[in-house]
Amino acid sequence: MDAMAITSIFVLSVFVGFEVVSKVSSTLHTPLMSGANAIHGVILVGAIIVADHSENNLELGLSLAAIVLATINMVGGFVVTDRMLEMFKPKKDASAAAKKEDEAAKGGQK
């Protein structure tokens, strides 16, 4: 890839990165950080590429270690973020209760 194309991609990504999170309530700071943390786990892709290129045991060993760490970062990151956000779900009890009431009302009409 030529340097200009890379620079363009880099600069544009910086601005997109700034833009997408510029207005976020403090409630979401933690999940957002955790989600961004999971995203940089795609270094897994790089780790797999270098494992493929590896020419001796040292290189292979180091790149396999990188794969393990990157997988933990990526998969663990997305799972823990999902668990945090699970708590924000619309209230189960309230909606379930509302449903029951609806059903009861319908039953009453019959």
């Binding site: 991609i9 990504s13 910086v14 990165g17 999170v21 995203i39 940089h40 270098v50």
Partner: peptide, 20 residues
């Protein structure tokens, strides 16, 4: 590694992380 994907993903996290 000449990977556009890693450049985009890494830069996004770097930029949004700085703002955050």
């Amino acid at each position: 590694l000449s990977s556009t994907l890693l450049i985009i993903a890494g830069t996004l996290v770097g930029a949004s992380g700085t703002i955050l």
